[in-house]
Nucleic acid binder design. Structure first.
Lengths: 188, 188
DNA sequence: GACAAAAGCTACTGGCCATAGCTTTAAAGC
DNA sequence: GCTTTAAAGCTATGGCCAGTAGCTTTTGTC
């Protein structure tokens, strides 16, 4: 019997493939084992259990998003950067609708996730700093941007918007709303 | 052996109590049966199974919210109505943080939920009509309001905002952003 | 070529959903 | 008041999944 040659990363890959193909509800150890050609208990050699697998999957999702957002905002500032950030966020959801559902609920409270989560927030904060926002004002503004963007993304990922017609137009309107109403300090 | 006298409604009540006390993950037929003092299979006399119970619970949540939003917006118009609506939405989440997680993902596509879901959307649409918004513009604006409000609510319900300090301030800022950037037709 | 660590396996337990089929309660009709 | 019957409850059972225990086999290293 040849060895499967699994690694922790390969298990996460299989989990993501499963999620992409059959939705977040299909993520079971049994299914991952079947897909990787291994008996279910063998997975425990690479992953501590289902909760840890979920966490690793969530971490990958956050990582991918952080990379996308970072490059999207790169070289831009202010309104242009905000719009690019928001478009990149949604584009992830459009590309991987099922993945967005496994984005960790509360990454800031989990020591294993807080690093990546902070990196993600840092992207937003960096853009807001371009408006001259710092400290408390930047914090509140970050929350507002997160709320708008995450709200739209999660509703779209869940198919929550009824007819999917014209979602681009809706989102551009949301971007315009955010951009136009972000508190701003005078440009330096 | 006296009879428990369950009804479909009582089962939903017990399910909601469970969710409130132990979170949405605690909603199992076994737990509901224990709480109602009945053997698990007996629940099938009142509910078709776990998916249906979830749906009924989601329906109740939507119903409660629709009632709250309706009375909150009543007698107000434009910015005042928008702000009241948004505050009422969040107040539900603050009062029942765990319930918000069982809000149905896609009520508009489920024939059993679409009625209540539409009633809920109607409240938002009614407020937007106060700005003179109709048709396509109103649709897009509704989506933006939903996104902002739902995004904030779901992040708060999941504890996704790190420190919960100053969430009121953040939300008031979001309200101000929405109110100030809503497209508006001239007042009649 | 021997050995040790890691990767895989089978066997098993316990939780939960769900179905089948029986018993008992309680309400309705005579 | 008694009979009847539908609904409400039960026990028994099966299947799926997570997770643990303990064994075998591969594979890389000395």
């Amino acid at each position: 019997m040849p060895r499967a040659g699994l690694t922790s990363g390969a298990v996460v890959d299989a989990a993501l493939a499963l999620i992409d193909e059959e939705g977040p509800g299909a993520l079971t150890l049994a299914a991952v084992a079947a897909r990787t050609g291994v008996a279910a208990p063998s997975l425990y050699k690479h992953v501590r259990g289902l909760p840890e697998l979920r966490k690793l999957v969530g971490l990958r999702v956050m990582d991918d998003m952080a990379a996308r957002l970072g490059t999207a905002a790169m070289g831009k500032s202010r309104d242009e950067a905000t719009a690019a950030l928001m478009r990149a966020w949604r584009s992830y959801v459009v590309d991987f609708p099922h993945r967005y559902a496994v984005f960790p609920d509360n990454p800031l409270l989990d020591p294993d996730l807080v690093g990546t989560a902070t990196r993600l927030l840092e992207v937003i904060l960096a853009v807001l700093r371009g408006y001259g926002l710092e400290g408390s004002r930047a914090l509140h503004a970050t929350r507002c941007v997160r709320a708008a963007v995450h709200g739209f993304a999660s509703l779209e990922a869940a198919g929550g918007f009824g007819l999917d017609e014209d979602l681009n137009t809706s989102y551009e309107m949301l971007i315009a709303m955010v951009v136009s109403s972000l508190p701003r300090a005078p440009a330096s």
